[in-house]
Amino acid sequence: MRKTWLLLALLPGLAAAAALPDADPVPGGIVALPLGDAQTPAPTAYYQDKRVMVLSHDNQWTALVGIPLTAKPGPQQLTVHSALGESTLAFSIKDKQYPAQYLTIPNQRMVNPNPEDQARIERESKILAQALSTWSEQTEVDTDFRLPAQGPLSSPFGLRRFFNKQPRDPHSGLDIAAPAGAPINAPADGRVINAGEYFFNGNAVFVDHGQGLITGYFHMSRIDAREGQIVRKGDILGAVGATGRVTGPHLHWNVYLNGAKVDPALFVARQLAALNGGEKAVTGTPQAAKLR
């Protein structure tokens, strides 16, 4: 059963989002769709039968729709329920070709798990699926994230991955090449919904920020956060490490929106631009920015 939290009651001081993430209507991107005057009751919206985030921004209701990496380019539609009834809103997804990355993993079990490993992976997948189905009824959500660690951005989101020359799922997050032991900070207020050790992810923490927006932090050397803990922007979640399937110490950072893994760089675009002297970082390219 999907978990539902009333984060607004738990975070009474939560401020309205200062800015929305960058929109990019591609697989792995985000689509922002206006839904009407924010003086009217808040509508609810669904994409591929999953509820999506609806925020009040610039005096209008706006739906933020996460697009799965598996989505096909072309026409799509959002189903909207408002005081006027049910309606559909059409939008379109553009094609995007992500570059390839070839990695050598010395531990063969991390490339071709044995039956015991596979049984563990399946058990863990169910646990993670339950955590990632969390929906928090929350009027305001801070989507103006801050990068959770300091270091070069190494592997960007969406790379087509090959481990030991074998094709695997695309890179689902953003890698920050911070040194082992470096702190990992919450990018925004939220609630820790899962913390544990996993076969591929190593030591990992997942934070619910409200309305289907969830972040994940993988390969940690140390976990400082506990499940159920309320965290504020900047709070330490743990430390960078090299646990799970890795080639070296780094933070792998995932962002999930309505169940879709989306590019974390879209949530920190303004910070990346400031670090790049005002120029927008190019996502999908290694070494998009260096953090100091």
Rank of each mutant, 00 (worst) to 15 (best):
F199H: 09
F199A: 05
F199C: 07
F200I: 13
N201L: 13
N201D: 15
G202C: 08
G202W: 04
G202I: 03
G202T: 04
N203C: 09
A204V: 02
F206C: 00
V207T: 06
H209D: 03
H209G: 11
Q211N: 12
G212I: 08
L213T: 06
L213Q: 05
I214L: 15
T215N: 02
G216K: 03
Y217K: 00
Y217E: 00
M220N: 07
I223S: 02
A225P: 07
R226Y: 04
E227K: 15
I230Q: 12
V231D: 02
R232S: 15
R232W: 04
K233Q: 15
G234E: 05
D235Y: 02
I236R: 15
L237C: 10
L237H: 02
L237K: 02
G238L: 00
A239M: 00
V240F: 01
V246M: 06
L251I: 09
H252F: 03
H252P: 07
W253Q: 04
W253H: 11
V255T: 15
Y256L: 11
L257R: 06
K261I: 00
K261M: 10
K261D: 09
D263H: 09
D263M: 08
P264N: 05
P264I: 00
P264E: 01
A265G: 15
A265W: 12
L266D: 08
L266V: 10
L266I: 10
F267I: 08
